[in-house]
Simulated scan of single mutants.
Amino acid sequence: MEGGGGTLSEIHQSAKKLLLRSRDGLERLERLEYSAPAAAAVSGADSELSFAVKKDITQIQSLCVEMDRLWRSIAAKPQRDLWKRKVEQIAEEAESLRASLDKYNLRNQKRMREANERAELLGRANGDSAHVLRIYDEEAQALQSVRSSSQELENANALGEAILSSIHGQRERLKSAHRKALDILNTVGISNSVLRLIERRNRVDQWIKYAGMLLTVIFLLAFIMWRH
């Protein structure tokens, strides 16, 4: 089976490679998080890595949409069921990575708020926190830019999924209407055959009834004449 981005097997291999890269990137982020001081906020390099992982996960989900379209067109049911399980497994792993990345970003946002609050307290104490605040403001802006870019990717991916789902739904509705039309035609054909058979049976029954009545009359007449 082939799609716009290659065969089903090729797309599946690409998705698996992206999964491995995303998982490795997320593990690196978590190692950096726990090796740094507990209150340290995300750095510029960490922001870039977080954005790269998010981009890979979004691409995996797009590939899953494409694979979902391709496995449905496989004629053999055993192969279709096998690919369905494979695609569902990829989609579940991608969703798990996305949830882990979201939790990581939330933890970093919390650390940044705490760092900003401490910087504000230090500034009030000695009036020398402008430099620290500027650093954290720049990092906060970088993180906001990452979130904005990620949201745009998610919106584009959601739009693509909606279009593919709409096309698939229309195709399924057309197939269903075609099957119903064939069923109606078959039913009408069977009903006409049954009606013709009933009509023939009624005519035969009528002839048998009339023949029986005629024989009865003849028998009665013959019996009366014989008695006289």
Results as ranks from 00 to 15, higher is better:
L153V: 05
L32Q: 15
D46A: 14
I218M: 15
I11V: 14
S47Q: 12
E48D: 12
R118T: 04
L26A: 07
N186Y: 02
R72P: 01
E172T: 10
R124N: 05
L97Q: 13
L32I: 01
N108Q: 15
E117Q: 14
Y104L: 13
R21Q: 09
L18A: 14
E154P: 04
A36P: 03
R134A: 04
S100D: 13
W207V: 03
M213P: 00
S129I: 00
R80N: 06
E66Y: 00
A15N: 06
R72F: 01
Q13W: 00
A140K: 08
K54Y: 02
K103I: 11
Y210T: 15
S129W: 06
A99L: 10
S176M: 14
A91V: 06
A162Y: 13
S73M: 03
R80L: 04
K77Q: 14
S100T: 11
Y34V: 11
I190M: 07
A156P: 01
Q151Y: 05
A39R: 13
Q13N: 04
E48F: 03
A222T: 08
E33V: 03
G44C: 02
R147A: 10
A156K: 12
D68W: 06
Y34H: 15
L195S: 07
S100L: 12
C64I: 01
L82F: 04
G169N: 14
E199W: 08
E154F: 09
K77R: 10
N186D: 10
A158I: 07
E172L: 12
S100M: 07
R23F: 07
R147V: 09
G169Q: 14
A119E: 02
A76H: 10
E27T: 12
P37R: 15
A130Q: 10
D24C: 04
P37C: 08
E114M: 09
M213H: 12
N116C: 10
F51K: 15
Q170P: 01
L143Y: 11
W207N: 12
S191D: 12
A130S: 04
R171M: 01
N105L: 15
S149E: 09
E2A: 11
S14M: 05
K180M: 07
L122H: 06
S145G: 12
K180F: 09
I135K: 12
K110L: 15
G169S: 15
A181R: 13
G4I: 14
E33L: 08
N105I: 05
E199C: 05
V204Q: 14
G189Q: 12
L215T: 13
L8F: 00
S129L: 01
D24W: 06
R124P: 00
R107A: 11
R118P: 00
R147D: 02
M225A: 12
I135A: 03
K175L: 08
I167D: 09
E88S: 03
A115S: 10
D128G: 00
N192G: 01
K55I: 02
M67A: 09
V194P: 01
G212H: 04
Q151T: 08
I224M: 08
L174C: 08
F219T: 12
S50P: 05
N192Q: 08
E152F: 02
L159H: 09
K86S: 07
L143F: 14
L133W: 04
H168V: 03
S165Y: 10
L63M: 12
L49N: 08
G6N: 05
I218Y: 05
S150M: 13
C64M: 00
K54W: 00
R113K: 09
A119I: 01
H168K: 07
S129E: 11
Q61Y: 05
